[in-house]
Amino acid sequence: MDGVSLLHPEDAVFEAMLEGWEKQQRGRRLGVDTIGERVRVVRRFTEFSGEYPWRWTAAHMDEWSTTLIAELQRARSTIRSYQGAIRQFCDFLTSPHYTWVSECEKRFGTHPVQICHEWNTAAHLDEYEGDADRRPMTREEIQALFDYADDQVEHAVRRGRKGALQAYRDATVFKTIYGWGLRCREVSRLDVTDFYRNPKAPELGRFGLMTVRYGKASRGSGPRRRTVASVMPWAVESLEDYLVNMRPRFRHQAGHKAVWLTERGGRLQPREIEERFAAYRNALGFDEDLVPHCLRHSYVTHLIEDGADPKFVQEQVGHRYASTTAIYTGVSNDFMNTMMRKALDRAFAAEGEMA
């Protein structure tokens, strides 16, 4: 308000900037977690630079980026995300649609500028910026994982200890992730009403189709729905057995819609799935880079190896672009050799016809 003298003008203006930016992002329908993380990045950068936004310079960004790379060793995608948050905050402050430039000029004799440019920030050049060591699991590794998970159920039953029910649930969770190519959050949010009959596959009963209602969101949109066709009958049998024979044994399950329940009657969370996977992975001596998402990679790879149409696989896993599905594919040497042999046979046959 004009004519108002602030007790701590720098802090008051800075907090008002962040509040205004939060409102602008909510208007774009961005998620609460996304907005909160961006605000925290701005606060961390402010603390690092020791300056308020109207005194930020490109040199501050250069120093912070150097610290993120050399000292903290943050991943390229993380650095790009941090820089993107600062860029968007500066865009908000310098936009002519808002009054922060004139407000800062009047109160502090200077104004905010854009400090993130092409020449001092990481560009998004690759479709995939994750860990290069991340790979699909082999068929042998997946079978070993499933066998180990099943063994945990038997061990708990023989010893008469608690945990057999939870071990059975976890074993089925891993089979479901692989059997339908799901993300951890997607499998966690499954409800008992998310399965339907497929007229093209009546032998699968009511598990011919799975509705994924909490697919990965993008660009401020809500969760993306998709329908996944069941293509692995053994996974259907495993899931149906759990829902019919094991889930009713959980306490407080009556009236609860979640497929995967905890012993206290809540919904199993992605973090819990990741922790149990890590425990089994370490017990088996597998690479530490393997995570539950690698089962999704394996789903894509193995369908391609088994001759599934790439477009069908793309729709199954909910990728908008075929290039994204291609990143998930890590076909085995046997598959590559088979394709190479077929190509050579066609080439030699063509040469023979020409001769």
Rank of each mutant, 00 (worst) to 15 (best):
G220T: 02
P233D: 07
W56Q: 01
I86Q: 01
L290S: 03
R107W: 08
V331E: 09
A349H: 10
L72K: 14
F250N: 04
T338R: 15
E288C: 08
R135T: 12
G31N: 06
Y98P: 00
L190F: 07
M1V: 11
R38H: 13
T66E: 13
Y299I: 04
T99C: 10
W21E: 00
Q25C: 10
R341Q: 15
F195P: 10
F108Q: 00
G208I: 09
T329V: 08
E47R: 14
R38Y: 15
N120D: 01
E15N: 12
E19W: 11
K106A: 15
E37P: 00
T324I: 13
W21M: 04
V228R: 01
S81A: 14
L6C: 06
R346D: 05
T138Y: 08
M246V: 13
F348Y: 09
Y280L: 14
A355C: 06
E288Y: 14
F348P: 00
N333L: 14
I115V: 15
D62I: 05
K200W: 07
T34R: 04
P9R: 12
I273V: 13
L295D: 04
G36D: 15
G130H: 09
R281S: 09
E353A: 13
V291Q: 11
V187H: 02
R346L: 11
A279N: 03
Y196W: 12
R159F: 09
E10P: 07
G3I: 10
D309F: 05
A59N: 06
R219F: 10
N198S: 11
H8L: 14
A132Y: 08
L30M: 13
H293A: 10
R264C: 02
D131M: 10
P9N: 12
S323I: 14
Y214P: 00
D150P: 03
G307R: 09
F250L: 04
Q25I: 04
A171K: 12
R55K: 11
I86C: 06
R206C: 01
N198P: 02
E141C: 05
R264Y: 03
G31T: 11
L290C: 04
R183M: 06
S102I: 06
G160D: 09
Y280R: 08
E263D: 13
Y299C: 05
